[in-house]
């Protein structure tokens, strides 16, 4: 039964198996993840906790992007710009609202998601009419335009200097890093749960149908453009949340924090993790934090300033090319348990 169904939904997507209590499983994963994060924040030193928080913030974005690119076939190079939209919204709102309690942060983050959703809808409407390289080029232009917008409207965005994000101190005796990690992972786990449920349902099947064959999807009664725009909007909302959390982490926003390279890194992360797989999005987010840290520790010993930021760049690039040519399924396809199961 389950074997037949898996063949029908070929590709990296989740197999449609109704006979397992998947709702319970997702809930357990989420609760387990939350417990693990809280435990880690008490076990790890502050800097590691901060890195853990960063993984959570990136996970929101990579999860949304992998659904868009892997499951719906739309490549976006503009997710860095969408993150910037979320981050700037938080900075501007916190400037007005901060000092009244923790609830203001929730309001700012929700507003950031809402605004990014609107921006995503605009880009998505254009994107739904575009294919392959045209879409990539358009979103690339969106990513490149961020510094130009911040300098054109410098009274609001303060040009290259950027804005600082005013935050209320964490409640009680919780340390700042721990609080940040909790916030980021709350966002990440909610995103993962929502996306997992979404891609498993009817909408997820429509996304994959559109990716695999637009004509067949349309003949089967799937609204191709509607599905594409909606997927882009969902993905943009995730990017807005991720950007908002990055702003909370860095406590400042500037165009330099959202360069074109960031958008390329995000694509790299989901490709290496495994396109279309939420587990792959997690591995991608881990890589986004781990590889620069690794490169930093390598270059620390030798006095080479030029290597510092550029070594991870080159490493990422080489990995991306090699993975694309050799193992297009990414890390998620290298799951040893799955390989064993297949042999058995």
């Amino acid at each position: 039964m389950s074997i037949v169904r898996e063949r029908v939904t070929a590709g990296p997507a989740v197999a449609v198996t109704r006979d397992r209590p998947w709702r319970l499983r997702y809930l357990l994963w989420t609760v387990g993840g939350a417990v693990a994060v809280v435990a880690l924040t008490y076990a790890l030193p502050p800097f590691r906790t901060y890195q853990l928080a960063t993984i959570g913030a990136y996970l929101c974005v990579t999860a949304g992007l992998t659904v868009l690119t892997g499951l719906n076939g739309q490549l976006s190079l503009g997710h860095g710009a969408l993150m910037a939209t979320g981050a700037y919204t938080v900075a501007l709102l916190q400037d007005k609202l901060a000092g009244r309690g923790q609830w203001t942060l929730l309001v700012s983050v929700l507003a950031a998601i809402a605004l990014t959703t609107v921006v995503g809808a605009v880009v998505g409407l254009a994107a739904a009419r575009l294919r392959g390289p045209y879409l990539a080029g358009l979103t690339l232009a969106v990513a490149v335009v961020v510094p130009a917008i911040t300098s054109t409207f410098d009274e609001t965005f303060n040009s290259d200097q950027g804005l600082s994000v005013v935050l209320d101190p964490p409640p009680g005796t919780i340390s700042v890093e721990r609080w940040q990690a909790w916030l980021c992972w709350a966002g990440a786990l909610v995103t993962m749960l929502a996306l997992a449920v979404l891609v498993r349902g009817r909408f997820g099947r429509e996304m994959r149908a559109v990716r695999d064959d637009e004509t067949a999807a349309r003949l089967a009664g799937v609204g191709v453009a509607r599905t594409q725009v909606l997927t882009f909007v969902v993905s943009a909302a995730c990017a807005g949340l991720g950007g908002a959390l990055v702003a909370v982490l860095a406590q400042s926003v500037s165009p330099g924090a959202f360069p074109l390279t960031l958008s390329l890194f995000l694509v790299m992360a989901i490709v290496i993790g495994g396109l279309g797989s939420l587990a792959g999005a997690f591995w991608g987010a881990v890589l986004l934090v781990a590889l620069p840290a690794l490169a930093h520790s390598v270059t620390e010993g030798i006095d080479a300033q030029r290597l510092e930021g550029n070594l991870p760049l080159a490493l990422f690039g080489v990995t991306l090319v090699v993975v694309m040519l050799a193992a297009p399924g990414g890390i998620a396809s290298l799951n040893p348990l799955k390989l064993l199961r297949r042999k058995a």
Binding site: P133, A136, T261, V267, N310, M324
Partner: peptide, 16 residues
């Protein structure tokens, strides 16, 4: 998408 992604990988390598 594959050609675009590989080209982007080359961008990262060259710039790095």
């Amino acid at each position: 998408l594959n050609g675009v992604v590989v080209a982007l990988g080359l961008v990262l390598v060259i710039q790095g």
